[in-house]
Design a binder for these strands. Structure first.
Lengths: 244, 244
DNA sequence: CTTTGTTATTCTCATACTGAGATTGTCTCA
DNA sequence: TGAGACAATCTCAGTATGAGAATAACAAAG
């Protein structure tokens, strides 16, 4: 049955109202770890619990636009931020008050400033993803989905450069992978791999001003290349448990 | 801003109504090609145009449930069908009458019977994806997205077995890949690869009743294995144009 | 200023995976 | 009965990966 044919025969307002929101899983790397932006709920239900930033779509506003707006309301930033649709959630009882369908978005950004709590939120801050508080609604599921998507996209897209600054060293890029995947990678092999994937990074010809904090030579600086897909991909160490 | 805080301060019914539908991209292999289930619209707007099957979500009905129902209404089938969420579309003007947010689902099945047109549809049939009619709304975009997703999932999941029957030969499985990807694959290498990926297929110990229609020995029959991910993945021949 | 420890970068080497082509033997059809 | 089709297996070269080591530049402590 097509939606419009349905519309022709039925009045949608005869149905219980459905509300559509966007929720944003915004990830960044801070303090050596992967963090997600959460806001503390000021109102019932789940008042006092942390939740993903999000809100109703507005008339005339497209979905990605709504997600970018919600993110900007909390972080003040909208450019330099990669944002993409994640998934939608619409279980009838996911919000106790009414039927709410949520379109979730995934956002990545280099180290962002501290968020400012919106007028409607009691608090807003970046939380380490490995030490999360209890979340409101089904936001734990949405976040888990977002993390898994982010980890996967690191494999076959240059997404990691979106977590790094304008210019970065190979080691910094490796740090992104290690942080997001939660593993440690072989420095030599990683270096070889990054430089051998066409279009992943391009040299700036510059180096860091000084060596690392604890020694070592100055590292060459790179910027993101023009590849949209990594080929061959940079695969995570095999996770046997995930295969079956 | 969280959705519930918003709710506390604003009455969503004060906003123009938003309707939520599911649309299904149902793919199967028929007549040697990849085909998608389309229904012909009986009502305005876009009356007479072909469209993806879909319709409003019902109160108390979860999203995947709604998608399965819509598919079953057209095909009569609900088991043996793999179904997964694809993406959501909510551009303000995508339906001329009101704000409609559509959650799209992707379904795969072995060769299915001819669809029966729902009472609301003028016609329903399987269309070759490489020879499509003009589609209603933004359904061409949704379908393109679904095809790309299906092609990608063939690489790293055992999805191809969902297009094959209960038991299948390696050659039939290769035919699935060749049909969906639109390429021809090296039979020997494909054979080696399939048998070397743990859990992709398992032997039934049986063979086909006779050789191929034009000769050749009887082929061994396999069934789908227990792997959920293919490791290593079965990658498409490199598509340079898609990398940049 | 010298020593020690760290880190960037490059190499080596063994192993695994892939693409291309060829071989062997079974089976259908003319 | 012969020709062609096709399943299944094998070979070989090229490429990619994992692990470890070597080289050299640099910071910080003595």
């Amino acid at each position: 049955m097509d939606e419009s044919e349905f519309l022709a025969g039925y009045d949608p307002r005869a149905y219980p109202a459905v509300a559509v929101t966007v929720d944003v899983v915004a990830l960044t790397i801070r303090g050596g770890g992967l963090r997600v932006l959460l806001i503390r709920r000021a109102e019932q239900p789940h008042a006092g619990l942390w939740a993903l930033p999000g809100g109703f779509i507005r008339p005339g506003e497209d979905l990605p636009q709504a997600a970018a707006r919600e993110l900007a309301e909390e972080t003040g930033l909208s450019d330099r931020v990669h944002i993409e649709q994640l998934a939608s959630y619409g279980a009838p009882e996911r919000d106790p008050r009414m039927r709410i369908v949520s379109i979730s978005y995934l956002a990545f950004a280099p180290d962002l400033p501290d968020p400012r709590a919106g007028s409607d939120a009691a608090d807003a801050s970046w939380h380490p993803v490995d030490k999360l508080p209890e979340l409101a609604f089904d936001h734990d599921r949405i976040l888990a989905h977002g993390l898994e998507r982010a980890r996967g996209k690191l494999e076959y897209t240059p997404l990691a450069t979106a977590f790094a600054g304008e210019r970065f060293t190979i080691s910094e890029l490796r740090g992104v992978y290690e942080t997001v995947w939660g593993v440690s990678l072989h420095a030599g092999n990683f270096h070889r791999k990054i430089l051998s994937v066409p279009g992943f990074v391009e040299s700036t010809g510059e180096t860091t001003e000084s060596g690392g904090a604890r020694g070592g030579p100055r590292a060459k600086l790179y910027r993101a290349g023009d590849a949209r897909l990594l080929h061959p991909a940079l695969l995570r160490p095999a996770r046997e448990e995930q295969i079956r």
